[in-house]
Simulated assay, not measured.
Amino acid sequence: MTFDTFRAQALARGFDEVLERQWAPHTVLDEHTHPFAADAVVAAGEMWLTVDGQTRHLRPGDTFALERDMPHSERYGAQGATYWVARRNG
């Protein structure tokens, strides 16, 4: 899948913002929330996403979704990571 395809599909599903996010190697984001719902696919690298005490190891092609204001933490691998994320604001 290309970013353009991901973007078009996300907009058709009612998301209002679609971004490519790139994270530096070994970045750690302690528990936090976002004021938007998110639906994402890992495009490169690897990351670990922890929600409700459960950690998932995500690699290219893996997807994840977060509801608005869902507490979570993120950790990125030795190569960092890139993911495409669709956001539903408001």
Rank of each mutant, 00 (worst) to 15 (best):
T2R: 10
F3N: 06
D4Q: 11
D4G: 00
T5C: 11
F6H: 01
F6Y: 09
R7V: 02
R7D: 06
A8K: 14
A8P: 02
Q9V: 03
A12I: 13
R13C: 06
G14W: 00
G14S: 09
D16C: 02
V18I: 08
R21A: 14
Q22Y: 07
Q22P: 12
Q22G: 13
W23S: 13
W23V: 10
P25V: 12
P25S: 07
P25L: 00
H26S: 10
T27A: 13
V28Q: 09
V28H: 05
V28A: 04
L29E: 07
L29C: 13
L29Y: 14
D30H: 14
H32F: 06
T33Q: 02
H34P: 02
H34A: 09
H34T: 12
F36N: 08
F36C: 05
A37K: 08
A38L: 03
A38G: 14
D39Y: 13
D39V: 11
A40I: 01
A40C: 01
A40F: 07
V41F: 00
V41D: 00
A43W: 14
G45W: 13
G45M: 05
E46R: 10
M47H: 02
W48P: 05
W48V: 10
W48L: 08
W48N: 10
W48G: 07
T50A: 05
V51A: 04
V51D: 09
V51N: 03
G53Y: 05
Q54A: 15
Q54G: 15
Q54D: 15
Q54V: 13
T55D: 02
T55Y: 00
H57T: 08
H57I: 00
L58K: 04
L58C: 07
L58A: 04
R59Q: 10
R59H: 13
P60R: 04
P60Y: 02
F64C: 00
F64E: 01
A65K: 08
A65Y: 01
A65R: 11
L66D: 06
L66Y: 00
E67C: 05
E67Y: 05
D69G: 03
M70C: 14
M70N: 01
M70D: 07
M70W: 04
H72Y: 01
S73T: 13
S73Y: 05
S73I: 06
E74N: 14
R75N: 13
R75E: 15
R75P: 15
Y76C: 12
Y76P: 13
G77M: 02
G77Q: 01
G77S: 02
Q79I: 04
Q79Y: 03
Q79P: 05
G80Q: 01
G80I: 08
G80C: 03
G80Y: 04
G80W: 05
G80M: 02
A81D: 00
A81C: 12
T82W: 03
T82F: 01
T82K: 08
Y83D: 05
Y83H: 15
W84N: 06
W84M: 09
V85H: 00
A86N: 07
N89A: 12
N89L: 15
G90K: 04
G90Q: 14
